[in-house]
Design a protein around this nucleic acid. Sequence first.
DNA 1: GTGAAAGCGCTAACAG
DNA 2: CTGTTAGCGCTTTCAC
Lengths: 337, 337
Amino acid sequence: MAGVSVATVSYVLNGTAPISDKTREKVERIIRETGYRSNMLAKSLRTNESRLIGILVEDITVWHTPQIIDGINEIAERQGYHTILSNLRLMSKIASRFEDISNYQEDIDREVDMLAGMQVDGIIYVGMHDRMLPEMISDIGKPVVYCYCYPMGRGSSVRYDNEEVLYQLTGLMLKKGYRRFGVIGGLEGSEPAALRLKGFQRAMKEAGIEVPPENVLCGGWNYKEGRETAGKLLDRKDFPQIIMAMNDEMAVGVYDAATELGLKIPEDVAVTGFDHAAIAQHISPELVTVERPLQAMGYHAMELLTEQISGREEENQDIILPCRIIPGASVRADGYR
Amino acid sequence: MAGVSVATVSYVLNGTAPISDKTREKVERIIRETGYRSNMLAKSLRTNESRLIGILVEDITVWHTPQIIDGINEIAERQGYHTILSNLRLMSKIASRFEDISNYQEDIDREVDMLAGMQVDGIIYVGMHDRMLPEMISDIGKPVVYCYCYPMGRGSSVRYDNEEVLYQLTGLMLKKGYRRFGVIGGLEGSEPAALRLKGFQRAMKEAGIEVPPENVLCGGWNYKEGRETAGKLLDRKDFPQIIMAMNDEMAVGVYDAATELGLKIPEDVAVTGFDHAAIAQHISPELVTVERPLQAMGYHAMELLTEQISGREEENQDIILPCRIIPGASVRADGYR
DNA sequence: GTGAAAGCGCTAACAG
DNA sequence: CTGTTAGCGCTTTCAC
């Protein structure tokens, strides 16, 4: 070094002790000239806080994940945290060893171990489905926030309100005069599908309308099944006045099934979707759909985490954020007559 | 601890010295019981290698970014590296301070500083456009690989072949008998658009066909302008037999413009796109388009980086990967007569 | 205002 | 086979 003790350099770097202008300038000059950078590892080791949080995602290629990460990053940046990303890559892993689908507990353990070893101040776990996790993040003595899923045991979570938004959307459609509804759900046993259906049924019940069970079918979340299911729904005498698909991909399937049968949207049959996905961005007429608060989930997850890191907030919270209904022309503006 | 010295524990943990079965078992038992985890920070500090690489992305919400990250992760996992993710969030930043668009150099510096401080073994920079970067990652004495962009100065890069694939695609269309081409490019001055156009022009020149300049227009990369531009191209007497849009979003615009004018695809006009994007996944007829090797770019970037970390590979390489043409029905199967 | 020195948790000689 | 010890780069008392 050039002239002073390591302690002095540390003081200059952190402004943690009064330093004479002369020495400070000298030190700063040397730092600039040598391109010195302090070793965060050593610093964290000494201070016992890393200002690092771990983001453990089930699969980064699932469309909502990057949006949530982006939300986390915005708050993290503002709060002076950095993020270390672990990608479990469940999509490809499940595909390549389908014989033991839920055997990724050990993958989680390994990653959590690694994150804990990196001395992260906390972990945010981002799921690929909105569901309860039977797998658990072993207790590492640091707060954990689950996002787009929730834990069976302890831990906070941030989710969006599947049920409420479908209750609202259904209410809106009822107000427009629609009475004969068809619903295309997701996979059998899917939690978000069940919640959305629950919101739908609640609105219908309050309106005193019976929904025949043959009007509520599953569409496997994908275009092809969505289209086939819509075909079944529409190819009969008293076909529904409106079909509510539980995601946009299936809604696109409904569009194509309707076209095939010579039915016009929204004149002959109205359609709604869910997700506000790219796939339905430019179909015509514009699809009425639901936008999930993805970025906002990231914000809240990170905020909750830092609150818990600093002990200001208790654990085991469950934040549920509202969704937004996106208007469109796939439903009659003037309502159903 | 329970019975032995710290050194012994270290030996057991790393298998770095012969240990009697008895002691090993004892140590392992204690480790299990206490949930002990070795502190990676201290380990890295001591060994001077972190097995950590930094991924610096311009914006994680840009559709290709997560795919590339996923590719990086796959190789990283296999090689025993972990990744720390820095998201520059340029999309929102550029939007919120448009007065000094290219002033994110300091953001980059800050993040690179931080990554270097974390003692990463190398950095992969993932761009949001395929372009030359005037900004530079300051030399941190560690290898840097650029992905989906390339540096003005030193550093390796991994990209995809814009020109070649459009040369091939155009050749294919020529072989099918198409002669009057329309092209909808991207933004004026966009590098990938220029390269794609170059490939197109090369194929046309080799075929000895003149392309009237009024048939080569810009579409701003988006649906709306794509649609308008297609309108201009199609709403004249000798309209093109085929329109090649330089991305799928604009291609969807072409579909809608054609429909509006009462033209059938592919009978009256053929269409090709670029990106193999979600937005064009279920339009009808299926769009002929180009898939970029996103995951593969991640693989190669990570592989190149580790090669450079271990000194096995020289710096300043430029890997260009081929794209894949996705067939479809937006071009006549039997060719143009 | 500044420096000496201890110690964060770990590894790697070196001894024994 | 196992323990002692130095030291990675930093912060932080405690003296001066």
